Simulated assay, not measured.
Amino acid sequence: MARAPKPVVFEEDEDLPVRANPDLVGHEAAAAVLEAAARSGRLPHAWLLAGPPGIGKATLAYRFGRWLLAGGADQPPTPGAPPLHLPPENPVFRRVAAGSHADLFALRPEAGSGVRALIKIEDVRRAIQKLALTPGEGAWRFVLVDHAETMRGEAANALLKTLEEPPPRAVLMLTTPAPDRLLPTIRSRCRRLDLAPLSEVETASVLARQRPEMPAADRVRLAAIAEGSPGQALALAEGEGLALQELVDGVLAGLATGDWRRWHAVADQVAAKRDGSAFVTFMALLRQAISGAVRQAARGGAAPGWLALRPLAEWSTLWDSLGRLAAETDVLSLDRKQAVLTALGWLTPPRR
């Protein structure tokens, strides 16, 4: 009897929603700068898009890349269209979305044998080799280095050599939430564009397009929690973010009483998921709530009542300590329940 063929397992293409996104939300000014530079005939060969995680840096980079590869700089602007507009039915748009355009190369961090995902030296070298070739489909070649701060050692130095002696008709676009982690020599050879977080209304509009089935009230709440990052809002939507935010709100509101039975129940709930995703999200939301309250108080605004339990300087120290605790627990695979209890113990004011 013939054996049944093994099922084919396809890896999820995490980059597809970004490559295939036709929308431009919140970054029209930056897109206009890119378009004007391309139309001027003096397009810088390297760009650095900097800004907080999840606000659309890679989305803008792909938008510019496909517009440039489609010959947008040589065509008159479409009346009433947003900057860098290319219709989804355009063949270049479709090939970029499919990841099959011969002149666009994307480098993204990949997890290896180590703990952290990195952009590998082999991928950088392959992209550099392709840049040395004649464009296969048009007049330009385009390389996106997403999360460029994850390059290490040889990878960063290899890219630096190309930035110092760029091939003609080639554009490299780096994105990063942490530009200070790049080599100063790399930063100095790129024209920098800083992207700001979106407004809550803009973030909610992205959620409405990506998650139309979600209740409008939940989208508004997620937009407020995400602090201008649609990427973070979508991640929270997929990872029970609203439920975890309610836990954070309850914990902070109950700090004055120090109910340890409640703290154990919270720790059990946060540590229940074996993959650790709930723990990472809970700790991130907890630190975000603290930093937001401290900023609000420092500006003279209305702050939540629990903030008065400690001086602002102590909250800042706790914010740092919680960050280290979360990182060590995640990297070293420590007991997550105990880590949550430790965090809540630090936050609970001493009894007098």
Score class of each variant (00 low, 15 high):
89 E>S: 14
332 L>H: 04
24 L>I: 05
117 A>M: 02
7 P>Q: 02
84 L>S: 13
85 H>G: 00
124 V>G: 05
90 N>V: 01
179 P>H: 06
154 E>R: 01
265 A>V: 03
329 T>F: 03
30 A>Q: 05
226 A>F: 13
277 S>F: 02
159 L>E: 07
175 T>G: 08
47 W>S: 02
185 T>G: 10
186 I>R: 12
76 P>Y: 11
43 L>F: 05
287 R>G: 04
201 V>M: 10
293 A>H: 10
77 P>W: 12
137 E>D: 13
180 D>N: 03
156 A>P: 11
213 E>F: 11
143 V>C: 13
280 V>Q: 04
170 A>P: 07
72 G>I: 00
291 S>P: 01
169 R>A: 12
113 S>P: 15
278 A>I: 01
249 D>P: 08
150 T>L: 04
95 R>F: 12
191 R>G: 01
311 P>W: 14
82 P>I: 00
80 G>V: 02
287 R>L: 04
47 W>C: 03
63 R>Y: 13
26 G>L: 14
118 L>G: 02
283 M>K: 00
318 L>E: 11
181 R>T: 00
321 S>W: 09
274 R>W: 09
170 A>W: 10
198 L>G: 08
321 S>Q: 14
286 L>E: 09
234 L>P: 08
105 F>R: 08
86 L>Q: 11
138 G>C: 10
346 W>H: 06
165 E>R: 02
200 E>Y: 05
339 A>D: 14
163 L>S: 02
36 A>Q: 08
72 G>W: 12
172 L>Y: 02
81 A>Y: 15
236 L>D: 03
97 A>D: 09
34 L>W: 15
258 G>M: 10
204 A>K: 11
7 P>W: 05
331 V>W: 14
336 R>F: 11
328 E>P: 00
205 S>T: 03
137 E>F: 12
322 L>D: 10
132 A>R: 02
61 A>V: 10
262 R>Q: 15
122 E>S: 08
46 A>P: 08
257 T>N: 07
124 V>A: 05
241 G>Q: 04
59 T>N: 12
173 M>D: 04
174 L>Y: 02
134 T>G: 02
69 L>V: 03
128 I>S: 12
281 T>P: 04
122 E>K: 06
144 L>S: 05
19 R>T: 04
86 L>S: 06
279 F>N: 02
9 V>L: 11
320 D>A: 11
257 T>H: 10
341 L>W: 13
320 D>W: 14
103 D>W: 06
197 P>D: 06
9 V>K: 07
251 V>L: 15
277 S>R: 09
253 A>K: 03
91 P>A: 00
10 F>H: 13
313 A>M: 12
152 R>Q: 14
249 D>T: 08
321 S>A: 12
207 L>I: 15
64 F>D: 03
127 A>C: 13
77 P>T: 01
179 P>F: 07
79 P>L: 07
316 S>E: 09
22 P>L: 05
269 Q>S: 09
231 G>S: 10
16 L>I: 01
262 R>K: 15
191 R>L: 04
322 L>M: 13
251 V>T: 14
152 R>M: 08
210 Q>G: 00
210 Q>L: 06
24 L>R: 09
318 L>K: 13
194 D>R: 13
299 R>T: 06
303 A>R: 08
40 S>M: 03
63 R>P: 11
146 D>K: 04
124 V>C: 07
187 R>F: 09
227 E>A: 15
27 H>Y: 15
139 A>I: 00
345 G>N: 10
230 P>H: 09
59 T>V: 13
111 A>F: 08
